[in-house]
Structures are given as C-alpha cells and as structure tokens.
Write a protein that binds this DNA or RNA. Structure first.
Lengths: 162, 162, 162, 162
DNA sequence: TTTT
DNA sequence: TTTT
C-alpha cells in the first residue's frame, strides 16, 4: 500500500542484558527487553501508582546489533525508532501464537543511548545497510547477493563510537 | 519510571468498519484493524513484493471514539498516535495468551482522517480530558485575555467536524 | 486543513536556564534553548566532527511551564514534543523578521526530563489543561481541586487490563 | 553530543510545485513549501477559525529529490520526516538573517505521498545514500563528489515506484 | 549557550 | 526483568 507509516518510538530501560544470537548464515540478531513506565497519583486513594509496559525489541541491522552488543546492558536507557511486526509461531502443543515485536531494520530505524554508561554514548541509525547482511528478504532488503565493494554500513560504523 | 516514552505512529487503512462496544458503565470502546504495507522489488527475482502488517487499535478516549464511529469505515486512511500495551488473557483452554494493541487514550493520543470520505476530515486529539478541565481556550490560543467561560475540551468537540 | 500533522520531537540539552516570563494577564511563558548535536568521523581527514543545532522552544502550557521552572536548568537533558510555528516580528529598523520556534501548548505537547538532576525526573504532558490542575501531582492526574465526579484517570485504571 | 534527537514529522500539502535546483557539482536540491493547518471554533464568537503554518522543506537526498520531482506538485499531500536546521544568510543590506528549514537528508529522512495523484504513491526513505558520499563525512555531508560505483540509493530507487 |  |  502506498502511503503507509509504521513507526514506534520508545524511551525506556533494558530489563536485561542484550541477548545476541546468530542466524544460520551468520548474521547477528539482538533481542532487547525494554520497559516503559507511567506513574501517577491515584486521586481517590492518593497513592502513587505505576504501570510498566514491557516491549520486545529485535534488531536485525548489523550496525545496530553491534552497538547493542558493545554498549547496552541491563538498566541502560535508550531511545529507539523501529516498526511493529507481529509474527506467528507455534507453541509446544502445536497451537498458533502471535508475538508483536518492535523491529529495528533498515532505514528509519534508530538506536541512541541516553545514559553515558560504559563510556559509550552515541547516536546511531541504520542506513539501510550495505551489503550482504541486510534484509535479504524483507521489504528492506536491498540487496544481498554480490558483496558490495564497500558496504555502507561499515562506513557508518567507522564513524562510531566517537 | 521517569523519562520514558511509549509512542506509536501509524498511517494505514482500516481493514473493516470500526467495532464499537460499551463498557459496563457505558463508556465507549472502539476497536480498529489497521493495515500498513511496504512494497519493494526483489532484486534477485525482479518481482514486486509486498508485506502487510495488521495492527489492533483500541480507542478509549470518548472523543476519539465518537470520531471513529462517525467518520471511519472500512478502507478509511488514518494517521494516529497511541501507545503500545500488551494485555494478558486466557484462551478457551485456559492458557495464557498475550495481545499487543495500540491504545488511544489520554494526552498524546491522536486520530486524523487522511481521506475526505464522508464529507469528514479533520484533526483530532484526545486531551485526555474529561470535561471541564481542558483547554480554557483553543489549541492555538495563547492568550486570550478574557477568560473563556467554557472549557476548551468542549470547544474542541464542538469544532469537529469542520 | 483537515488531516495535517505538525510535530517536532527533540532530545537535547538546555544551553541555559529556562527563561520565565508572564503575559499581561499573568500566565507563564517559558523559553528554552535546546541543543541537539550529531558527531561523525570525517572519512577523508579522519577527524572527528560535530554539528550542533540550536532550537528555540516556547512553552505556553501552564503545567509544562511549571515543570520547566522547577526541574530544568542549564545542561538538563529533555525529551519534548511540540509543533513548529514561525512568527513575524519587526527589528529595530522596522524590518520584518521571522523566527521559527517549537511551541509546547495544548494536546500532543510533552516534556520529559531525561536526567535525574534535582531529584526531579518525570514524564509530563500537556493535556491542554487549564490552570491549576496540572502538574500538581502527576501527568496522569487530572484531578485537582474539586474531585471530579468521575476522574478519567480512575476510568483509565479501571479499564486495564481489559 | 551523544544521545540527541532532532526530528520533524509533517503531514501537509504543497503550496506550490517543487522547486528544483542543482548544486555546482550537479547534485539536485529540491525545495518544498508545505502547509499544515489547524481549525477550531472560537468559543467566544462561535466562528470557525483556522491557522495555517507554512514550512520550508529542503531535500538533499538524491533519491527523495527524484521522487519529489516526479510525483509531487502543488496541492499534493505528503508525510515526511526530516530534521530542523537553521541557517544564517545575509540580506541585501548585509544584515544577518536566519531561516529554519526541515532538511531531508540521510538516514531517518522519509517522504511519502498520501494522495494517489499522478499514478504515483509510495513510501520512500533516504537510506543515507549510497555509496561514496555517505558516511564519508557526515550525515550532513551533502557532498559526494566521486560518483559512487553502485549507489545504494539507486538500488532503492529501483524498487520504486511500484 | 548544552552535551559527550 | 528496568528505571525513578
């Protein structure tokens, strides 16, 4: 469909260290659990109340995976932009289940650390990546195939951390 | 938690007419199914491909419910801002399930029609408001001078459709 | 125009303490100067480079003004959502000039502190609110003053999880 | 500065056809004038009022320039994401002036047509460009210079329009 | 004028 | 499971 937008913006804290996996062909995938919360004072009881929402974030962009691996850990505060995707899977009993995740992949995905821990810090974005590693299959896949002479993602990565 | 943000921005089309329900105490709740899509041309096969993502949207804001009921229908294109919420429920077999929805409720929720169907059109936001406490004037009115006798939220509601 | 959106999202640091003024009829107006920066390493020279952008922010929302006054100071890091407005003025020589500002006023304006300085911290939004009721307690608290017969926040709590 | 965000999101209509220029080294630059509006009913007079804001948009991304040239015209409705930049210039009398623009360049810039005119339509993003000119210097580097051997942007462009 |  |  022409003219659609699917964007999630979060600022929250990692509930656990980033979980790093690799696809069969060696590309990294990082999963994050991120908490966002709201607090307010209940008018009737005057008690302070809080609601925490837990988000599943999946990073496919190689550059952002690297950032997550190197700089993020349990408790880190991040700003990110990604998109919603719901995927279907089967539980042990063979029943269909759905999980909704925030996917960071391709252009318009961003990950920024908001606390200075680890001496890191920085503002990162996935330029859509360069070469072989990106998207292979997805709407974002520009390519793959032949190794690009100089993958853009690497260029980008060269710049960071600063 | 201080300093967190949980925001979803979608532009997409309704896959069905809005589904309107009422809570036990009479407040409206509207459910929307919204599709966002991306298309690209597969470089390897040169085929055009498309991926459609379906989103569950729940509107609790009374004002936005009214808008949805009155103006939206299957096929309508909308811009919206809401927040992610995952709720737990039990399926028929008593197993826990989770569903992630985009909730429009309270400040920072917005719903805007992007096609002119139905003679409608307009830009709506939920002030979160109930009745009497919102906006003393107009969104743009910084100033004024004469205290308006009638709360902006009502004004706002009066304003639409325009 | 129906169906338009005018939104600015910034994360940056205050270049100076908030500047607080009052309108003739006593309402507060707060001006902020906020810096956003990007850094990168120049590929050719291998030097680290940086570009800082300075933004003029004007807060008309009383609640957000109060927050700014109480919690923000030079160096504070904030997340904010507002809208672009360009206003015309005359310089000393009578020539027309324009200044573009990010205005926080009414629904869909938000201000969140991202560092914990001052013991503060919090997540604030402008419900378009009128006067006395915002900030008094929490972003979620719409209460204030006379207990509204059916506080929305409570509604909200009732509703979730649903 | 690490951890900053500078993002503008607009949905509005072009007030005029795109204005296309070229830099000395041949790269395209497109200027757009975009209107966003809000309407409301004045509580005191009960008149309908409207405020239109005009935005200056500058597109440096080659891919997005092409899109703008090919598909946009006066009256087109667009969704875009870019960033704020204020540049200094001198008027005829040698006085300093500032103009704030919304710049589409590099990752995290997007342009989407929201009306189907011209048979067009589509969802475009600037991947930060391709080849040789991105990252080489900066996100802000509009430069370029050497023709990229296989510009990513072209890859991307191959996919559109669909 | 901020920040890292 | 985070954070304040």
């Amino acid at each position: 469909m022409a003219g659609s937008v699917n964007k999630v913006i979060l600022i929250g804290n990692l509930g656990a260290d980033p979980e790093v996996r690799r696809t069969q062909d060696g590309r990294p995938v990082v999963n994050l659990r991120i908490a966002t919360s709201e607090s307010w004072r209940d008018r009737n009881t005057n008690e302070r109340r809080e609601r925490t929402e837990w988000h599943r974030v999946v990073i496919f962009s190689e550059g952002l995976c690297r950032i997550a691996e190197q700089y993020l850990k349990k408790g880190s505060k991040v700003y990110l932009e990604g998109q919603l995707q719901t995927r279907e899977w089967e539980d042990q009993s063979g029943q269909k289940r759905w999980t909704t995740e925030i996917v960071l992949q391709g252009f318009n995905s961003t990950l920024t650390m908001l606390d200075g821990r680890s001496g890191g810090g920085g503002d990162f974005a996935d330029s859509g990546s360069g070469g072989s590693d990106f998207g292979r299959s997805s709407p974002m896949d520009r390519g793959g195939g032949n190794a690009p002479s100089r993958p853009q993602r690497d260029d980008f990565d060269d710049e960071i951390p600063f």
